[in-house]
Design a protein around this nucleic acid. Structure first.
Lengths: 341, 341
DNA sequence: TTGTAGGCGTTATCAA
DNA sequence: TTGATAACGCCTACAA
C-alpha cells in the first residue's frame, strides 16, 4: 500500500510539507541540501505524486477527451494514435468516447468529458449532429476544442481537416489523364462537409477539363460495399455507361469492382475506379485500388499541436486555426491503364 | 464560467453544504422538501459535480487504463471498443496508452497510469516483456489487473484470451478434411504464448489424424506480408512441397497467396491456405481467405466484466479468473476445395 | 530559505 | 433532519 504523501516525508525529515513540495518541484528558493535530502528520501519512501490532488488544486487534469463515431475504424484509431503520440510527451492522457455516430450520444459524451474536467476536447462530429449547443457549452467554459476531419463551422473553433476538395480533384484529374471521359461519382452523405467537398472537387475537375457532367452519373451511396454494387449496377444499365468511377469511399469502390468483375467487365481496362481513404484492404484487393490517403496519424499529431498551442496562449484569446492537410493520391492498378500498356 | 459548487447552492438556500451534498446524493435521512429544493436550485444554477474533488476524496478516479502495443491495429482497437462499451454505462472512462510493443515503454506507461490513479488496468503485454516487476507493483497496490490476449502467467491475475490452441486445431482439422495431408505451418514469435498455443494446436491436430510432422514444413515468420512470401518460396522448393499451409497470421497467409498466384499455383486447388485473426482485408482478397476470428469486441466486453466483478468483491481477495473464449473458424475460398467441386 | 495557513470541492463523522 | 468540521493531498501567498 503505497500511500506516501509529502506530509509523510516532512514528518520523517522534520521539515514542513511546504518545503517538501517546493523541493520536489524544483522551486529555486530552496537550499541544495534540503532539496537533495528530500529527493533522496522521497525516492526511498517510494513517494508518488497524487495527480488527483494536483488536478483538484490546479484545475488541470492533464487529460484530454477524444470523441469519435467508432474507435475501431482504422481512420479514427489512427488519428487517435497520432494525438496520443504527440500529447504523451507533454504529460497528457487521452480518454476516448464513442458517439456511434449519434448526436444524442455525442451530447452526452461531451457532458461526461466536461464533468471529468478534461483540459481539451478533440472531436469528429456525428453525421446527424445539427444543433451545436453542446459545443457552445464547451467553448463557454473556455475549454480548447479541436475538430478533426468532420467539422462544424463555428467561429473561434480550430479544426484540422484534409483538403477533400483537392483530394477529389486530384483523383478525377488522374482518371481523366488515363483517358477517361465519362466519369461517374459515388456521392456520400451530404450532411457531412467532407462529402460535399469531394463532390465539388469532382465537379470542378470535370469542368476544368471541359467534360460534361451527367446527372445520371452521380449516385448517392452510403459507405457500404453493397451500396457500391447497387450503384454500379444502375450505372451499367445506362445507355452510355461511364468509363470511370470516382468513389467517395473505398468500400463502395470495392463493391463496384466486385460487381464489375462478376459481369466480366475489366478494371481498369474497361473502366477505371478510384476510392477514398486508403483503407488497409485497398492494397490487397485485385486489382489493387487507387485511393486517396488522408494521412490520419499526421492529422492526429497536427490536431494535438493545435491544442498545445491553444493552451500555451497566455491570454485566453480564442484564436481560430484552420489546418488543412494535403491528401495523398495513391495510384494503384484499379485506375492505372497507362502503366499496363 | 460554470463553477457552481455545493457551497454556492448552500449559500443561496441558507443551508449547509453538507445538506446539499446529502440531498444531491439521495441520502435517505433528508426531508423531501429540502431534497427537492436543492435538486431544483442545483438544476437552475447549472450545478455540476466536480469529479476531481470526488476522486480525491474517495480515492476512486472512475477511470481505467488500457495498454496495447498500437491502438490502431484492428484487433486492439476492437478490444478497446468492447471494453469502452461495457464500462461506459458504469461511469468509467478509458484512457489508452501505447507500448509500441516495447517493454520499457510498458513499464513507463504502467507508472503513469498508477500515477493517474486508475481504478483498473487492462493490458496486452509486449513481445519482449520478460521482467514483471511493474506488474507486481500494480498488484501490490491492489489495483485490479486484467490481461487480454497476450498474457503472462502470474498467480492472482485474471486474463481473457481466446483458445488459440483450439483455433489452430480447428483450422488444421478443416484443412485435413479438405483432403490435405502435407500441412505446413507459419510459426509466429514464440515469445508470445498465443503463437506457442497455435503451434501446439497444429501439432496436435496432425498427430490426432496420424499425419507426419515434417520439420521442414514449419517456418518461422513475423507478421509481415513479405515474411509470408519468403516462407512460401522456401516451402515450394522442397522436394515434396506441402498441399496446405496453416498460418498463424493473416498477413503471412496473404503473402503466401500472392506469391503462389504469381507462380501459377492455384489456391485452393493446388494448395489450401488458412490464416489467423480475421483481419478485415481477408474478406476482400482473392480468393477470400479462411481464417480464425478472435472475437475482439467480445474479448473486450468480457475483460470489462471480469474487472467489474473484481471490484465488486467486498473482500479484496485476489480471485484469479481465466476466461478463455472460443474462436470462430471462418471458412472462405482459400481453403474451401470441396465446395468448389 | 523555511514554516504556517488556507483552499481546491466533496463527503463522512460527530453533534445538535 | 441538519450543521459544523475535518479530511483527501497538494500548492502557494504570506509571514518569519
Amino acid at each position: 500500500m503505497s500511500k506516501v504523501t509529502i506530509y509523510d516525508i516532512s514528518k520523517k525529515l522534520n521539515i514542513s510539507a511546504a518545503t517538501v513540495s517546493r523541493a520536489l518541484n524544483n522551486n529555486p528558493k530552496i537550499s541544495l541540501k534540503t532539496r537533495e535530502l528530500v529527493m533522496k528520501t522521497a525516492e526511498e519512501m517510494n513517494y508518488e505524486q497524487n495527480t488527483l490532488a494536483l488536478a483538484l488544486k490546479s484545475g488541470k487534469s492533464n487529460t484530454v477527451g477524444i470523441l469519435v463515431p467508432y474507435m475501431n475504424r482504422s481512420f479514427f484509431s489512427s488519428v487517435i494514435r497520432g494525438i496520443e503520440e504527440e500529447l504523451y510527451p507533454h504529460g497528457y492522457h487521452v480518454i476516448i468516447c464513442q458517439t456511434r455516430d449519434d448526436a444524442k450520444s455525442e451530447v452526452q459524451n461531451i457532458n461526461t468529458l466536461l464533468n471529468a474536467q478534461v483540459d481539451g476536447i478533440f472531436m469528429s462530429v456525428s453525421k446527424n449532429t445539427k444543433d451545436t449547443g453542446h459545443i457552445d457549452r464547451v467553448l463557454q467554459k473556455g475549454i480548447p476544442l479541436v475538430f478533426f476531419d468532420r467539422k462544424k463551422n463555428i467561429p473561434g473553433v480550430s479544426s484540422v481537416t484534409i483538403d477533400d476538395f483537392n483530394g477529389a480533384y486530384m483523383s478525377v484529374e488522374h482518371l481523366i489523364k488515363q483517358g477517361c471521359k465519362r466519369i461517374a461519382h459515388f456521392l456520400g452523405d451530404i450532411n457531412l462537409e467532407i462529402y460535399k467537398d469531394r463532390y465539388n472537387g469532382y465537379l470542378r475537375a470535370m469542368t476544368d477539363y471541359n467534360l460534361p457532367i451527367d446527372k445520371n452519373y452521380i449516385i448517392r451511396t452510403n459507405s457500404k460495399v453493397e451500396s457500391g454494387t447497387a450503384a454500379v449496377k444502375k450505372l451499367m444499365q445506362l445507355p452510355s455507361p461511364p468509363d470511370a468511377i470516382f468513389s467517395s469511399s473505398d468500400f463502395t469502390a470495392l463493391g463496384a469492382v466486385q460487381e464489375l468483375k462478376k459481369t466480366g467487365i475489366r478494371v481498369p481496362d474497361d473502366i477505371c475506379i478510384s476510392g477514398f481513404s486508403n483503407e488497409s484492404f485497398t492494397q490487397y484487393t485485385e486489382p489493387t485500388m487507387t485511393t486517396v490517403d488522408q494521412t490520419p496519424i499526421k492529422m492526429g499529431k497536427m490536431s494535438a499541436r493545435v491544442f498545445l498551442e491553444q493552451i500555451d496562449e497566455e491570454i485566453s484569446v480564442t484564436i481560430e486555426k484552420k489546418v488543412v492537410l494535403s491528401p495523398q493520391l495513391v495510384i494503384r492498378d484499379s485506375s492505372d491503364r497507362l502503366k499496363k500498356k
